[in-house]
């Protein structure tokens, strides 16, 4: 089973936790873990398209780090001077790097989130809040592409009598395009009237609407929830013990690394890589079953 086939609530918990941890933790190892794991997840979920995201991100991140160290002068370890005569410090450089890595990790997680959260899941999650709201989103999801398709149809019809938005002189084209917009609005309103009749006819205005979804919360989902929360509690314990934080100002100070620290590192890495691990396990199981 792929990660996106799990219940949408689990997807939501995972991404919410992963993104907030990536933002909150500034310990270099955790930052590095966030970024690398986010990258692995992105490659696993989106394939080669993740490479594009990465290629766009890396220069931005480098630029930000440079900019940050250039204009922030806290810290005690001077590395050199910029043209204005201000010192460039190791602390500011590291902090800038950690900020940009964290931002990069968040961006990568969001790209994963967009891949996992189809419109269906969004509609479902809103349905948990309010059935009417989720229905509204579903209607919107239908009407937007439909209106566009109709705009194309009008355009073709108008072209068939020589009045398309791409025909005739420039002013004529402008008038034709305007006309297309105005008729599109009339059409949308007119159709919405009929749709609303169909909705009322099927009891839309009755009280006590429910929101149906195809998702089921079964044992597979429950066991994953247990794993997620076990890992999250471990990570939070690490945060409580100041394992996820260091000081950059005035100098880099971090808690001593003990044996226990490695437990926190492992828990964090494991948590972030859950989608990839699930994928590998499933592929293994499928291969075993098929053999």
């Amino acid at each position: 089973m792929r990660f996106d086939s799990y219940h949408p609530l689990i997807n939501l918990i995972y991404f919410a936790a992963a993104i907030s941890c990536s933002i909150a933790f500034n310990h270099p190892l955790f930052v590095l873990l966030s970024f690398v794991c986010a990258l692995i997840c992105a490659f696993s979920l989106r394939g080669s398209r993740a490479l594009l995201v990465l290629l766009a991100l890396l220069p931005l991140m480098a630029l930000y780090t440079w900019w940050y160290s250039f204009y922030n002068h806290f810290g005690v370890t001077a590395l050199g001077e910029n043209f204005a005569g201000n010192s460039i410090t190791a602390e500011a450089l590291f902090y800038g790097a950690s900020l940009s890595l964290r931002a990069g990790a968040v961006a990568l997680f969001i790209s994963c989130l967009l891949a996992v959260f189809t419109a269906d899941k969004v509609v479902y999650l809103f349905g948990r809040l309010s059935p009417k709201l989720s229905l509204f989103i579903a209607i919107l999801l239908r009407s937007a592409p439909r209106t566009l398709a109709y705009a194309r149809r009008i355009s073709v019809s108008q072209q068939g009598i020589g009045r398309g938005p791409g025909q005739g002189s420039l002013p004529a084209r402008f008038v034709n395009a305007l006309r297309l917009c105005s008729v599109l609005i009339t059409w949308t309103l007119e159709n919405f009237l009929e749709s609303s009749l169909s909705m009322r006819s099927r009891g839309y205005s009755l009280r006590g609407r429910t929101a149906f979804s195809l998702y089921r919360f079964d044992n597979r989902d429950r066991s994953l929830v247990v794993v997620i929360f076990a890992l999250l509690i471990t990570i939070l314990a690490g945060a409580a013990l100041d394992q996820t934080h260091i000081y950059y100002d005035p100098r880099i100070i971090m808690m001593p690394v003990t044996a226990l620290s490695f437990v926190f590192y492992a828990a964090y890495g494991l948590f972030l890589l859950l989608p990839v691990i699930i994928r590998i396990i499933c592929a293994r199981r499928f291969a075993a079953a098929a053999a």
Binding site: A119, V123, A138, L141, S195, R202, F212
Partner: peptide, 10 residues
């Protein structure tokens, strides 16, 4: 015009 939602199952 009678169809309200975006998915067949819905």
């Amino acid at each position: 015009n009678q169809i309200v939602t975006d998915k067949v199952w819905h």
